[in-house]
Simulated scan of single mutants.
Amino acid sequence: MTFDNLKPLIKDILQEKVPVDTRLTKVCELLKETVPYYDWVGFYFKNSDKDELKLGSFAGEPTDHVIIPFGKGICGQVAVSNKNFVVPDVKAQDNYIACSIYVKAEIVVPLFVNGENVGQIDIDSHTADPFTEEDEKFLEFVNAKVAEILE
Rank of each mutant, 00 (worst) to 15 (best):
V108C: 09
A92H: 13
S57A: 15
I67L: 03
A105T: 01
V90T: 15
G56W: 09
A59S: 15
F85C: 08
S81T: 11
S81N: 13
G60H: 11
K91P: 07
V90S: 14
D64M: 05
T63S: 06
K83C: 09
T63C: 03
K104Q: 14
I68Y: 02
P88Q: 13
H65L: 01
V66S: 00
K83I: 00
V103G: 05
G73I: 04
I107G: 02
G60M: 07
P69A: 08
D64H: 04
L55R: 02
G71E: 08
S57G: 10
Q93R: 14
A59W: 08
Y96R: 13
V109G: 01
Q77V: 00
G71D: 07
Y102S: 12
F70W: 07
I68V: 06
N84S: 14
A79P: 04
A59V: 06
I74W: 05
P69G: 06
I101K: 15
I68W: 03
I67E: 07
V108D: 05
A92M: 14
V109L: 06
V103C: 12
G56E: 08
E61I: 09
T63F: 01
E61K: 11
A92G: 12
Q93A: 12
D64S: 06
S57K: 08
A92I: 10
C75T: 00
I68C: 09
G71Q: 06
E61L: 11
A59M: 11
Q77M: 07
P62K: 08
P69T: 06
C99S: 07
I68F: 06
V80F: 11
A98V: 15
Y96Q: 13
P69H: 03
I68G: 05
F70P: 04
K91N: 15
F85N: 11
K91T: 15
I107F: 10
H65Y: 07
V108K: 05
G56F: 10
V78H: 06
L55Y: 06
V90F: 14
V87F: 15
P88Y: 14
V108T: 04
N84M: 11
S100P: 08
A79I: 07
I67N: 01
A92D: 14
F58R: 05
D64F: 06
P69I: 03
K83S: 09
D89W: 12
K83Q: 12
P62C: 01
V80L: 13
Q77N: 04
I107T: 02
L55C: 01
A105Y: 08
T63H: 05
E61D: 12
E61H: 11
V103W: 11
Q77I: 00
V66I: 00
P62M: 05
N82T: 04
